[in-house]
Design a binder for these strands. Structure first.
Lengths: 118, 118
DNA sequence: TGGGGACATAACCATATGGTTATGGTAACC
DNA sequence: GGTTACCATAACCATATGGTTATGTCCCCA
């Protein structure tokens, strides 16, 4: 899987409130499928599907404890996604400056003499 | 739109390589639809659809310059997404420690005397 | 004033997504 | 050894997504 495909899978996995809530639960400690299903008004197979999406994205991993398959949060992909976002922070923080606002304005409406405005 | 729905829209918008490339281009400066279409082997309406997704997520905004509709990157939602990810960093960084690894192991296989392993 | 460039929108299509119910496997327990 | 708890998988369905081509609208310019 290429880095771009990893970001695809990571952001897609994060784009669902149920999956984000599952990650929030797992951030507090490992949990079985039954424990993860309990808070939601949703069937167990639906949660299993969400877990498969999260695992495919590398955001969680599965262990084994008798019949249980406790899930564990994995930080690497979250780190990659954060790094991607951080890379853009410098750009859009720059674009908040008054100078950049002015440049944007000039770009949209160059002060050529007698330029029609509409 | 609730904060959760904003995160849904933001992460979903970021889960596509074309849209991330568009953001990368816009991070360098505003650009028209034609300019944004040029690098891609894709029709202009397809790019317009991606732009609509990005704008619905609040990641970009549209200005007007005669027939052009130059797009501009907007940082607020990127910041919200980053903040969400950062909030989890502390948790998954904790889980990398040797102590947590040990606790995970004990959680999976409690050292009760003569416990069957399978 | 009409032609063309820039862009949006509509209609359509294939595939992906997110849920359901039904069913099957495996391990613990009585 | 039969039952029960835990979980996965399959089959199915409705809607969303990501692309296409066709067409319409607006605005500059000759």
């Amino acid at each position: 899987m290429t880095p771009s495909q990893r970001l695809d899978a990571t952001f897609a996995a994060l784009a669902d409130p149920t999956r984000r809530a599952i990650l929030a639960r797992l951030a507090l400690g490992n949990a079985s499928v039954a424990e993860l299903t309990q808070p939601f008004a949703m069937s167990q197979p639906a949660i299993s599907k969400h877990l498969k999406v999260l695992e495919h994205a590398g955001l969680i991993s599965t262990a084994q404890d008798a019949q249980r398959r406790p899930r564990k949060i994995e930080g690497v992909r979250l780190g990659e996604a954060t790094a991607w976002l951080e890379e853009y922070r410098q750009f859009w923080e720059r674009r908040y400056s008054a100078l950049d606002e002015l440049l944007d304005e000039l770009q949209a409406n160059p002060p050529k003499s007698k330029r029609k405005r509409h």
